[in-house]
Design a protein around this nucleic acid. Structure first.
Lengths: 290, 290
DNA sequence: CTCTCGCTGAATGGACCCATGCAGCATCAA
DNA sequence: TTGATGCTGCATGGGTCCATTCAGCGAGAG
């Protein structure tokens, strides 16, 4: 318990350190290598005050002189001066009294709680792996997400299509939705993944009922095991949403989707090869920066 | 103010560190010189993990070899080992036995860290509110998000359109993208919101450059303040992504988007009325279950 | 008184750290 | 194509840090 508090405080302090680092870098023109160093320091903000220039250089994947030049570019006399500065500002342990958190920060804290809950649920990965096997075994993978859930379905579908041969995003309701479900079934689909988030459109419930009547196994990521879609779901994966802001925050469902992707990659024999092939093609096309 | 909190926190942490040091010394027969060193370390527990053997020797008024022998007497391999131990236990890592967490849970923990970072950054809501003012003041709000960022952009746009009169989702690249930006400008847009996540497509960078040349103020939510899009961004809002799984997890960017929505609602005078009107129409149509 | 033993600090050598000079390379303008 | 500019890594030298060795010192036993 004392350990928990200490841990939380440390994480908080780490986050604060990262924010201070960001501020420190602002207003300086940095070269690409220097940006790599900065990014690395933010990523390991807790260790930063202890690292030597060589250690930091190795972690960032750059040469040691680049680290020295980085410190000078930030206005310090040298790398030791930068590190000393970090040591001086580090002990600003944020007391983080709950009442001192503004509305936005409270919403973030609520989502952290939701993620803790998700983490606990993931202690048993069996349902995830079960779903992943279903996805991998299905030659066609329809992904349903309407309205508020459209973004999550789209994100899942984008990545899934990098490793799965035929991912079909169903993000529009109306009469065409049943047509698309039919199409997926004709193409061999055996399963359907549904993202169901509040507020639950009737269309989604009807679509799931239709999908099951068409013989599909329905896997649903929903905000609650008792969501209205539960009646039409074969495998329910709950992930709480945050309700502290005007619009629901959906960290846990998004993350659960990524976990499903990871498990599906493990279940698909060619996943790694597909990803590497994509990277190769992307590099050849100059698709991505850096 | 922050100084007070920080001071208290530091004192608290110092007390904890001092207690741990006392425990560390217990059960070891120490010579008078070594007791001086121990006493000095307790007295300056906060700095202890940073001091070199010579510095500590000077502070304690003993010779440098005595410090080395002191570390050995405590059972360490040498003074660096002792200092490393102090660094490791100082923040009392919330690691909570990482080996007990499976791969999925570790990814969740990483995202919790990212959210802590976001929470710290949100302590200063000025950039958020600045962005929200820009959005509210623009009669047309184009929201750009390609590929991996499409889902986030779509989610933002879905909710934003409930309170903003004209939200335009730009989720497809190609030559049409510039056309759509032109269209938004002609319709009166003064700002563009971009979700930029790894891997950063060149198209996004080019689109932002084009948008700025067309007179738009660019607000970007990106995984890092040093993302390639930073050059073409007027207001950068960083939110780290998780990289523990095969595909990036984007809790913090998603949440930051919702925070922007919240702030935009506060900046739009008719937001509350728009939401209530939507609820009324939705209820009348039986759009949602329950 | 003297011998012994343990503690302590000075000195030394190796290892590491950091800043500077130099050459290779990419980018951009002419 | 060519030259210039800026960025980056390699190599190097001075400086610091740390562990070891050795001599001096004080306390206690004989």
């Amino acid at each position: 318990m004392s350990g928990d508090n200490g841990g939380e405080g440390a994480t908080e302090a780490t986050a604060g350190a990262a924010a201070r680092l960001q501020k420190l870098f602002e207003g300086h023109r940095l070269t690409p290598t220097q940006r790599r160093i900065a990014h690395c320091m933010v990523r390991r903000a807790a260790d930063a005050p202890f690292l030597s220039s060589v250690e930091l250089a190795e972690l960032a994947g750059v040469s040691q002189p680049s680290v020295t030049r980085f410190a000078v570019a930030l206005g310090f006399d040298g790398y030791p001066a930068l590190r000393r500065h970090l040591r001086d500002v580090a002990p600003e342990r944020a007391a983080a009294a709950p009442d001192s958190l503004n509305e936005y920060q409270q919403a973030v804290q609520e989502e952290i709680g939701n993620l803790q809950e998700l983490s606990a649920a993931l202690a048993d990965p069996a349902p995830i792996e079960e779903a992943a096997r279903l996805f991998a075994a299905s030659p066609v993978l329809p992904v349903l997400g309407l309205r508020a859930a459209m973004g999550q379905a789209a994100g899942f579908a984008y990545f899934a299509s990098k490793v799965h041969p035929d991912v079909r995003l169903l993000d529009e309701g109306g009469s065409m939705l049943a047509d698309r479900i039919d199409g997926a079934v004709r193409a061999g689909a055996s399963v359907l993944l549904c993202f169901a988030l509040p507020r639950h459109p009737r269309e989604v419930i009807e679509a799931l009922a239709y999908a099951r009547s068409a013989g599909l196994t329905v896997v649903t990521v929903a905000d609650s095991a008792f969501a209205p879609v539960a009646r039409h779901t074969d495998l329910m994966l709950p992930a709480a949403v945050g309700t502290g802001l005007a619009f629901d925050t959906v960290c846990a469902p998004m993350l659960l989707g990524r976990v499903l992707l990871e498990a599906m990659c493990d279940a698909l024999p060619d996943a790694q090869a597909s990803l590497e092939a994509f990277d190769a093609r992307a590099a050849a096309r100059g698709l991505f920066a850096e």
